[in-house]
């Protein structure tokens, strides 16, 4: 496999393409593009994971928020009311420390939570398959404890999902734009290469070289530059992942975006695909550009 890969890359080129200025700058431009595309792809993976996690975590819970001064007796009634509702599996009161931890992203770690009038929170597990009658449940709870707030998370989750999907779309468009940029840059590079080596190309043509033979010189060169740029860009993207952390939470959101860092096999698959795609796109683009130009020769 390695031998067959090395063979075309080290193939003797009749045209001095390796000495062109483009051979020096093209891999770096491709590297930048691949870096952007790969990090975008990684972000898509993480976002997809986060959506899945949010779905799993939030569609099966609901939270009842009560004023800080609610009596224990009223809290017990509220818990009993929740448990009686169709679709609610269990309900329990969160203690002060749990409540404080949930509020940490907003209040920070140094806030004197003991001195603050923290709301009382009841965490209920619900069956996601059952449609809960929220208006009736809200009415019941309101009659027991005025100002009780029932948060099903569904509205919030819906907004987050919608935002995440839009973000996915933006990243997806970004990846496509990057691919088109690579194509455009390679087209211009191939054209410049043809202009620089016009005399040698004409010579090969007059010696009876088929268009395919001449195009192969450019496409192998472009493949090599694309792979080199792809490797640099993918390595930089991996380095970014490592810098962000070996795994865990990348954003301190209440419902965090979790990553498995470099231990995620999809990340490695993405990197391999990005490198091969960079080489492949560069190769095919160079080939098509050169063949089109050669077709204009007599």
């Amino acid at each position: 496999m390695i031998a067959t890969l090395r063979l075309p890359l080290q193939m003797r080129l009749d045209l001095p393409l390796r000495q062109d200025a483009s051979s020096r700058f093209l891999p770096w431009i491709i590297a930048l593009m691949v870096y952007l595309a790969t990090t975008g792809g990684i972000a898509l993976i993480w976002l997809g994971d986060a959506l899945g996690n949010w779905d799993a975590a939030l569609t099966s819970t609901l939270t009842l928020q009560l004023p800080a001064d609610t009596s224990d007796a009223r809290i017990d009634v509220a818990i009993a009311t929740l448990k009686q509702a169709k679709g609610v599996v269990s309900a329990r009161l969160l203690d002060q420390s749990e409540t404080a931890r949930l509020l940490q992203p907003w209040l920070g770690t140094s806030a004197p939570v003991d001195a603050l009038p923290l709301p009382r929170l009841i965490d209920a597990r619900v069956d996601p398959k059952v449609d809960i009658d929220y208006p009736t449940l809200r009415q019941h709870l309101d009659s027991i404890i005025p100002n009780a707030q029932l948060d099903s998370n569904r509205t919030w989750l819906g907004n987050m999902r919608s935002f995440a999907l839009r973000l996915e779309g933006v990243i997806g468009v970004g990846v496509i734009v990057v691919a088109l940029l690579i194509v455009t840059i390679v087209v211009f590079t191939a054209r410049i290469g043809m202009a620089i080596h016009r005399s040698a190309i004409e010579l090969l043509h007059l010696l009876g070289a088929q268009d395919e033979y001449i195009a192969r010189q450019f496409q192998i060169h472009a493949l090599w530059l694309g792979l080199r740029g792809g490797l640099i860009g993918a390595a930089a993207a991996l380095a970014t992942v490592i810098i962000l952390g070996p795994g865990g939470y990348v954003l301190a959101l209440p419902v965090p975006i979790a990553t498995r860092g470099v231990f995620d096999w999809r990340l490695w698959l993405l990197v391999v695909v990005a490198v091969l795609a960079a080489g492949g796109v560069a190769m095919v683009t160079a080939r098509m550009t050169v063949l089109r130009q050669l077709g204009r020769m007599p």
Binding site: R12, D14, L15, P16, Q19, S199, A200, L203, L204, L207, G208, A209, Q210, Y213
Partner: peptide
């Protein structure tokens, strides 16, 4: 050719071999 048109980065051997290679 009038202007010889040898490819500078190729050796004499490879220049002469070009028609065979193509």
């Amino acid at each position: 050719f009038q202007d010889v048109r040898l490819i500078d980065h190729l050796t004499v051997r490879d220049n002469v071999a070009l028609p065979l290679r193509v």
